[in-house]
Structure formats: C-alpha cells, structure tokens
C-alpha cells in the first residue's frame, strides 16, 4: 500500500494567492486516475468518455516522435485550445526542457498543467525551467530520487517517472519507481549528518530530502509514466505505490482505443482487485506493437536520458 501523502503542501497563504498548495492540490484531485495523451479533439473526447481525469494535448504521441525523429516542440496552441474547448476535464500540455517561453505561452493559453518533458527535444542542455513564479502548475519526470527532488525544488508540483515513452515497454517505469522507493527507504534510516552526505551524493536539496525521509514518500503526487500499455501494466504501477498513471502511445496506438482506455481506467481504480483486472483485461484487441527497450533501443535513443 502506498504511504499516505499528508493533507497539505503548505499553509502560509494569503487570500487570493495561487500558492504551491493550490498547484499541488490539483494533482491530488487527479490521484487514482489516468491521464491520456491525445493529438486532437476527437481523441480527447474518447479519453473523456473513457473516464480519463485529464488529457495531455500534443501533436505527436511519443511513439510517432520516436519513429519520425526531428525536433519535437511545444504543440500548436490552436490545437491545444481546440482540445480545451472540447472537454471539461483538465488539459495538460508539454513544453521542452528549459524552454521557459513555451511555458509562458502555455500559461497564457490557460492550460491546467505543464509537463516540462523529456519526450520533446530539450531546449536547454543545462537548465530546467524555474517553475515557482508561474501560476500554472508543472509536472516533471524523474528516474531517481535526486532528480525528483531537484524538480520539486525548482517548483514542480507533481512528479512522474520518466519510464521510456513511446515504447510500450513498462520496464523503465518500473525501474524508476523502484529506484525512487529504495532510495527513500535508505534515506529513512539515516541520521541528520548521513542525510547531508546523501543529499550531496544524489544532488538533492537537504531540506526536501529530510522531508521525504520523514514522510517515507515523495512530498508531492507521483504518477507512473513511460511504457504503460495494458490494464495490468497500470495496476502494476499502482501496486508499486504510484498515485496514478499517464498513458501515452499505449491507448491510441492500439486496436480498440476506447475499450483499452476504459479498461485502464477501471484497472487503476481497482488495482488491488484481481477479479476486476481479469475482467477488464479480456478481449482488448491488439496492444501497441512496442519496442523492447533492453534489446532494440540504442543508448542515444533513450528519451529518459534527457534532463538531469
């Protein structure tokens, strides 16, 4: 069972302020839900009808970005706007790592969350976006605890695993979730001086590491992402302690998108109920073909390596 996330992320707000608690609060409302990648309004409606808690609007799903190559950038705001006008659930959009002007544009457009994402081509080889000044909240990917805490210290109000997007292979998402969990359990047993050394070792701010060790989990909502393709994959990530699941290419690159989407939604709610999992796993048609990350993916093709 996942460790409980305490009920609030900060209490010091003045009236009217859109604070970290409000930004992290929306992520809490998405917990136990599925966020689906969509490339147009029609797919967004399918996702909404399937019970998605939010959609991620982007021009190409990761599997296509991978296949087509080239520079992947923020999507056309017009296309994002169409999706925002079509569905009533929150709409997220991706900006390139470090591309703070794409973030300004997305904020002004009024998206509900920005994903500063390794799936797009990084715009800055060194810096991530300073996310605190924005009214719009951010979600960022991580492979390990240090990376997660660096993103939170920059202002991310929600974390997801990087996994390996566009592969349909869940192994990297599992690796990243297990890595974060084992690093947190190491930190839990440490004295303050040991934690200071550990913070330096993993490149994490000491105060955030200390808070994480005390809570026994990340201090913000943490979703699985990158390679989830089946209801069983989604339930696996939930049983490993994730708060919810992003599904990218897994839905609209499969045979029967609407049915698979519904099945993954049910699997995330009832992740501990094998009877429901049997039922929803049946007769879903073809899953996305997938790329075996261990044998078919070259080091240079790994999206998870983008960012630090």
């Amino acid at each position: 069972m996942a460790t409980e996330l305490p009920t609030t992320n900060g209490t010091s707000a003045q009236d009217g302020e859109n604070t970290f608690a409000v930004k992290a609060g929306l992520a809490r409302m998405l917990k136990g839900g599925v966020i689906m990648d969509v490339v147009n309004a029609e797919q967004a409606r399918i996702a909404e009808e399937a019970g998605a808690v939010a959609v991620m609007a982007l021009e190409r799903v990761p599997a296509d970005i991978r296949a087509q190559g080239g520079v992947a950038r923020m999507s056309d705001p017009k296309m994002i706007k169409e999706i925002m006008d079509t569905v009533t659930i929150p709409v997220m959009a991706k900006a390139r790592i470090g591309h703070f002007v794409e973030c300004q544009i997305l904020e002004s457009l009024g998206v509900d969350y920005i994903d500063e994402s390794e799936v797009l081509t990084p715009a800055d080889a060194i810096h991530h976006v300073s996310k605190h000044p924005y009214r719009v909240p951010f979600v960022c990917g991580c492979r390990n605890l240090g990376e997660a805490l660096r993103r939170i210290s920059e202002g991310a109000a929600m974390i997801r695993t990087k996994g390996e997007a566009g592969t349909g292979d869940v192994v990297e998402a599992v690796r990243h979730t297990r890595t974060v969990a084992s690093e947190i359990s190491r930190a839990k047993g440490m004295s303050e001086p040991e934690l200071r050394v550990y913070a330096k070792e993993i490149g994490a701010p000491f105060e955030l590491l200390q808070e994480t060790a005390k809570l026994g989990r990340l201090p913000v909502v943490n979703f699985a992402a990158g390679g989830v393709a089946t209801p069983a994959d989604a339930a696996l990530m939930m049983q490993l302690g994730c708060d919810g699941v992003f599904v990218g290419s897994g839905i609209f690159k499969s045979g029967d998108a609407a049915k698979r989407a519904r099945a993954i939604v049910q699997a995330v709610t009832h992740f501990n109920d094998p009877k429901v999992l049997v039922e929803v796993s049946m007769d879903l048609g073809e899953a996305m073909v997938g790329i075996n990350t261990a044998s078919e993916l070259k080091e240079g093709e790994r999206l998870a390596k983008r960012g630090w």
């Binding site: 809490r28 409302m29 998405l30 917990k31 136990g32 839900g33 909404e48 009808e49 399937a50 019970g51 998605a52 808690v53 939010a54 009533t88 659930i89 929150p90 519904r262 939604v265 049910q266 709610t269 009832h270 429901v276």
Partner: peptide, 15 residues
C-alpha cells in the same frame, strides 16, 4: 471527495 466528477461518475457506473 474531490476529484474529477466526470471520471468518478463514469467509474461508479462501470463498477
């Protein structure tokens, strides 16, 4: 609780 009301109502119906 708080959440996405559309998602909760769809999942409730299917459950």
């Amino acid at each position: 609780p708080g959440g996405e009301s559309t998602a909760i109502s769809l999942v409730a119906a299917r459950s």
